[in-house]
Write a protein that binds this DNA or RNA. Structure first.
Length: 871
RNA sequence: GCGGGCGUGGCGGAAUUGGUAGACGCAGCGGACUUAAAAUCCGCAGCCAAUGGCGUGGGGGUUCGAGUCCCCCCGCCCGCACCA
């Protein structure tokens, strides 16, 4: 018998699908719409196996939903702007554009080889001017509406990439790509005012709008937004040379209840007041630079010593009139709150550490709840009679003491009372604070979407008139990419950059910044749904598809991309482009593909294909090889496999199938050669099993109502398999769906396909083929053709379960004696309890353990289990 | 430190959510076919002192019955991290 040959079958069916335009969306308005999307790839050069897993998952959903009668949108495109293209031009010559489009060309071919059910008519790259022209238009619209603004601010400057980074792109004080320590620099750049939408972005996480998102992703976004309720209040300051603007110090606190425990005020090293004194006093300036050198990049910041510098000013407590010293303190962040705090050492650990170091007062104002009594000893201390000398701050709830009018109140009541009191006295008000910062959206790079703005000496920033859009990137020579920095800022771009102001006609320059690539990816999914020439989307058309019902991608985008896209969608809604605010109804974050690592005797990493595995030992050309940890595939450790080589050896179907078969999709999966071989074996067994029923579907014989038990059992298995595979696909349990397919294939092992058995075999083999189709679409078409099915398998409607075939006539019940399994009985599923009980007690294995004992109770759980309790 | 998640055979993982623990796959072992090997097919397979006992990181509890629920402990992973 001929074996299944993916090398010829796969291209053949891909061509047929193409010719029939099977996967183009929007063909049948009578069908319900379903939009499934995987995060689009960056055109780095070639597809890696992680892409295969990602797109295989989306493809299962796309094909499954299509078979279920949905009009499915499953598009593909390219997240094509970004720094690697410039780096490639720097290292290898050429232009970022050539590199990018060349890579797209290659990767498109590789993706097509996977046989994905994609509507390629909607493909675009974000570096296409036809795409970014609309992004520029929206930018200007957002600007007009006040969603975006240009402002002077301290930015995160990556000295290696020579560009600004968003806060989200700074990891441990280092650039997320370069790894270089980030510097702080003052610049005029553009910001999306995402903090204005912080509340709505936060609320949607909890109000059911994102019910289809994993809890941990929502939790990460919640933490990232970091909303806190508190009090902003101003402490009066007095001291030498204090300019008017510093005669009050605004601070932010989430613990206004501890206000009576204040013993000093603290400001961040880069606070304006600190700078004021730094200008006059070298000691202050030295201390500030010392703090900045320490930076936020210290890994063990937890242990970093609290340090401070006392300023020649005094604060006054508005409630108690006490004098409070003012310190520059290294643990205060300018970016959070007002960059200044009041410190209550008794009830904040950092404040306490600081107070102990500098001998400042520690005054408890909260009496801990019962059980914490020992935490508060009123001891004799010289500095403060209420200080008991402890080094651990009490941060829990309790009852207010030493707090004037608040004495006796529980802390949760003292908190709003303190805010009300301060507000009443006019010293401050209750405020909400966010950890989230506005999104600095521009980069000082060439290969990005140009900011469509002209900077005029007299008019300031002026929008490029709409009829002049898109502002295209100017052509610059390949040598420009060998120089660090932004070519748009250099003489090579003068012809483009130097222009006249559209407003006053005077001399002006273009903004040489380009947009962060996260802007490009914040709305691409909408453009997939609708791509008119004259506007970003046609609202009606886009909203017919949006929101994306199922979005699939890596957990690494849990914060950045997914938060930005949610934000951007809201801006688009306010501009009337859509009625949708949440772009992704259901989100699935898939795990990574990992692989064992191999090292030779010299510690050099080896590619998997350089290693022979036999009997648990690994060798390379006879030399011993150490098998290392199973890790995320990375070029540096060479633990990578090429999807192309796998497709050559086993076919795309086997690769896709194995990716989904071994682990739950949200977890990491280890790529193994033996695993993909298992998938290959499965494909062949399916083909050989189906081959027994050649032409059966063409015969189209009805299944008789009365069947022999053996044939009825096959029908039951088929329908149970339809039921479980359908549920497992819907629930993203692809590994379980595949286990069911293996099982079903096992039951069909010796199946007869002729005579009386033919109609049942036809149904069973058709079922096997169709249930396998979302995972192994090429094989399924080959089987479908073999069976004589009508048209293409991918067009056939999903099999429907006959419910009466899901129930059994006889069920096997385990029987326990005192909770231990002793035997089993066979009864009708609806047998009366006392009958089941009698049968159970009569069963020989059970009787043996009951003999000589008293039966106290018999528990019968219908259809499940029997438990006999004896003593 | 805070937040989230997890811990089941040699490995990846199932277990209808309180009801037969280990489905399915991988690796392993035995057999068939072959001169032989590969491939393929058939079978076995949690552990042990085996008609029984023990088993879901450890200890306790609730229950007729616990991988699943509750309490304590141990270990691992992820995110945030001097956020006032």
């Amino acid at each position: 018998m001929a074996r299944y040959n993916p090398a010829s079958a796969e291209p053949k069916w891909q061509q047929r699908w193409d010719d029939a335009r099977c996967f183009e969306a929007d063909k049948d308005p009578s069908k319900p719409k379903y939009y499934v999307l995987e995060m689009f790839p960056y055109p780095s050069g070639k597809i890696h196996i992680g892409h295969v897993r990602n797109y295989a998952m989306g493809d299962v959903i796309a094909r499954f939903k299509r078979a279920q009668g949905f009009d499915v949108l499953h598009p593909m495109g390219w997240d094509a702007f970004g720094l690697p293209a410039e780096n490639a031009a720097r290292d290898n010559g050429g232009h970022p554009r050539e590199w990018t489009y060349g890579n797209i060309e290659v990767m498109r071919g590789q993706l097509k080889r996977m046989g994905l059910a994609i509507d390629w008519t909607r493909e675009f790259a974000t570096c296409d001017p036809e795409y970014y022209v609309h992004q520029q238009k929206m930018f200007l619209e957002f600007w007009k509406k006040g969603f975006v603004e240009r402002r002077e601010s301290l930015v995160n400057w990556d000295p290696v990439e020579m560009t600004v980074l968003a806060n989200e792109q700074v990891i441990d004080g280092k650039g997320w790509r370069s790894g270089a320590p980030v510097e702080r620099k003052s610049m005029s750049t553009w910001f999306f005012k995402i903090t204005e939408r912080a509340d709505d972005l936060l609320e949607a996480l909890d109000d059911g709008r994102l019910a289809g998102w994993p809890a941990h992703v929502k939790e990460m976004q919640r933490n990232w937004i970091g909303r806190s309720e508190g009090l902003t209040m101003t402490f009066p300051l007095s001291g030498e040379d204090l300019p008017a603007e510093h005669q009050g110090l605004p601070i932010y606190t989430t613990r206004p209840d501890t206000l009576y425990g204040a013993s000093f005020l603290g400001i961040a090293p880069d606070h304006p007041l600190a700078k004021h004194y730094a200008a006059k006093d070298h000691a202050v300036a030295d201390f500030i630079s010392e703090c900045q050198a320490l930076g936020t990049s210290e890994a063990d910041i937890e242990k970093a010593e609290k340090k401070g510098f006392a300023l020649p000013v005094m604060g006054r407590h508005p409630l108690t009139d006490e004098e409070l010293p003012v310190y520059i303190a290294n643990f205060i962040l300018m970016q959070y709150g007002t960059g200044a705090i009041f410190a209550c050492p008794a009830h904040d650990q950092r404040d306490l550490d600081f107070a102990r170091k500098y001998g400042l007062a520690v005054k408890p104002v909260i009496k801990p709840k019962d059980g914490h009594e020992t935490d508060l000893k009123i001891a004799d201390q010289k500095s403060d009679p209420t200080d008991d000398g402890r080094t651990e701050a009490y941060v829990g709830p309790g009852t207010m003491i030493n707090s004037g009018p608040f004495d006796g109140l529980p802390t949760d009541e003292a908190l709003p009372a303190a805010i009300a009191k301060i507000a009443e006295l006019g010293w401050g008000e209750g405020t909400t604070n966010y950890r989230l910062r506005d999104w600095g959206l521009t980069r000082q790079r060439y290969w990005g979407c140009p900011v469509p703005v002209i900077l005029c000496e007299t008019c300031g920033a002026v929008p490029v008139p709409e009829d002049q859009l898109p502002v295209r990137l100017p052509e610059v020579g390949p040598e420009e990419f060998k120089t660090p920095g932004n070519p748009l800022d250099r003489a090579c771009a003068d012809e483009w950059r130097i222009c006249t102001c559209p407003k006053c006609g005077g001399p002006a320059q273009r903004d040489t910044d380009t947009m962060d690539t996260f802007v490009d990816s914040s709305w691409y999914f909408a453009r997939f749904a609708s791509q008119p020439d004259d506007k970003p989307v046609d609202t009606e058309q886009a909203d017919a598809w949006l929101p994306v019902q199922q979005y699939i991608g890596g957990i690494e985008h849990a914060i950045l991309h997914l938060l930005y896209a949610r934000y951007f969608m809201r801006n688009m809604k306010d501009c009337g482009y859509t009625d949708v605010d949440e772009p992704f109804t259901n989100l699935f974050t898939q795990g990574m593909v990992t692989h064992a690592t191999f090292q030779d005797e010299d510690g050099q990493w080896l590619f998997p294909e350089q290693v022979e595995l036999a009997g648990g030992k690994a060798t390379s050309n006879g030399a011993p090889v150490t098998i290392g940890a199973i890790e995320k595939m990375s070029k540096s450790k060479k633990n990578v496999v090429s999807p192309e080589k796998i497709a050559d050896a086993y076919g795309a179907d086997a690769a896709r199938f194995f990716m989904l078969s071994d682990s739950p999709p949200e977890r990491d999966v280890e790529w193994t050669e033996s695993g993909v071989e298992g998938a290959w074996r499965f494909a062949n067994r399916v083909y050989e099993t189906v081959a027994k029923g050649e032409g059966l579907l063409a015969a189209d014989t009805p299944i008789p109502d009365e069947l022999p038990d053996a044939l009825k059992a096959i029908r039951k298995e088929a329908h149970k398999t339809i039921d479980s595979v359908t549920g497992d696909i819907e629930g993203f349990r692809f590994n379980k769906a595949i286990a069911r397919l293996y099982e079903f294939l096992g039951t069909l092992k010796g199946v007869k396909a002729d005579g009386d058995a033919a109609p049942v075999a036809a149904e069973a083999l058709r079922t096997l083929t169709q249930l396998t189709a979302p995972f192994m679409p090429h094989l399924a078409e080959e089987c479908w053709e073999l069976l004589g099915g009508e048209g293409l398998c991918c067009d056939a409607p999903w099999p429907v379960v006959e419910d009466d075939l899901l129930t059994d006539d006889v069920v096997t019940l385990p029987v326990q004696v005192n909770g231990k399994r002793r035997g089993e009985i066979q009864v009708a599923p609806d047998a009366p309890q006392d009958q089941v009980q009698d049968i159970a007690l009569a069963q020989a294995d059970v009787a043996r353990f009951v003999e000589g004992k008293t039966v106290r109770k018999v528990i019968v759980v219908p259809g499940r289990i029997v438990n006999v309790v004896v003593s």
